[in-house]
Design a protein around this nucleic acid. Structure first.
Lengths: 215, 215
DNA sequence: ACGGATCCATCATTGGATCCAG
DNA sequence: CTGGATCCAATGATGGATCCGT
């Protein structure tokens, strides 16, 4: 699948997935289903990337570099978002000096294509829509980001838990809880800190889903 | 194989390999020989690491962290060193600010266990000896390092070729010539530079081998 | 419900070096 | 001979997320 030429084409492709089942779409792409779905946690996201023609080597950049669009799947059950949404890993080592404007979170969330996936078997694609933060949303996300990164920069990285932040939270990220990354304490001395990732709370994406239904 | 308790034990183990063939040592360790030796370029080095009990997760540190010893194999044919010796990748991005004292090259070469390997079939282990740079050797290596890193720091990374440096040279390093690493030009602007590695010229290690034979 | 823990894939980097064309 | 190119393995970081115990 080649990359979509513009945002309209991308959105049309995503909407066209609506109602189709995951096994059906995987089969059409020649992708095998994982033997143990409970362990292939990223499978849904990677399948949608292929189905929509996302850049296979996106790396740090957005999934659709030409369009500046990031792709996220939203697991839905009983009409409600079931999980928080991973945004990116936290730049722990640069927490004290990085600005919101240059942050990964802001880059990732500048324009997002959400694709809902109904989690009752057989898994089935649902709604798809583009989201760009409104000025109010961006201000709130920024406030969360600045609070959380500020705490890391102040050397509190060990003490931060997932209860902080209204819409963005920080949670462990990595293969195990033992994963560590280089960081600096409040005095600038190097330390090994737990790996952290930013997540959008489900309460936030529930709001987006609701707003989208009203359109 | 557990790690040697001290340098004497390490050296004794290395000398005990002398005269044994590579297939024989591999067999004793339960290691299979690579199907196509021409493509398994690092096999010899990794086999000796296992045979001597080097730290399997050395990463950035020395092969024997407790002893501060780095292990290098030297391919020999007709009594002469056949190849240059890879030391480490060059810290291209930090070229302008890094000092010799903190450099990877110096750390790697502070104490080296050389193990000669006779390259006429069947490959066979030869001499083994410890080397620490004499003040004169270190001064010469430092001069090469400072010249080469200075050139990188001055933005000449594209222009440096392997003919520079008396004993240390810079050569491409990586999977292909297209490999690039982040660097900075003379004005401090970010660029993508070719990946480089430091090598000891064969003329240098020939001298070490000769000196060792005279002892 | 949700905070903490975990799982897989892929790419980049580094370490181990030797290959090979001119 | 030797400067330039390449090859394999292991690790770490990041991106894709969901699992699961309380």
């Amino acid at each position: 699948m080649e990359a979509p030429a513009d945002v309209d084409e991308l959105l049309a492709r995503a909407k066209a997935l609506g109602g189709r089942t995951v096994p059906e779409v995987a089969g059409a792409l020649g992708v095998e289903l994982p033997p143990d779905p409970k362990r292939a946690k990223g499978f849904m996201g990677q399948l949608v990337e292929r189905a929509l023609g996302a850049c296979p080597r996106a790396g740090d950049g957005p999934d659709f570099p030409e369009l500046g669009v990031e792709l996220k799947t939203l697991p839905i059950a009983g009409g409600r978002v079931r999980e928080s949404t991973f945004v990116c890993t936290a730049e722990v080592a640069e927490a004290a000096t990085l600005s919101w404007e240059r942050s990964r979170v802001r880059r990732k969330l500048r324009r997002v294509l959400f694709v809902a996936v109904e989690r009752q078997r057989p898994w089935r694609y649902g709604a798809a829509w583009l989201w760009t933060p409104s000025p109010e949303e961006e201000a709130a996300l920024r406030a969360d980001w600045e609070e959380l990164m500020g705490a890391i920069g102040a050397g509190e990285v060990e003490a931060i838990d997932a209860s902080r932040g209204r819409w963005l939270q920080l949670r462990p990220k990595g293969a195990t809880a033992a994963c560590r990354v280089k960081a600096y304490d409040a005095d600038g001395a190097p330390i090994w800190a737990p790996t952290k990732g930013f997540y959008l709370r489900a309460s936030f994406t529930r709001g987006l889903l609701h707003a989208q239904r009203l359109r």
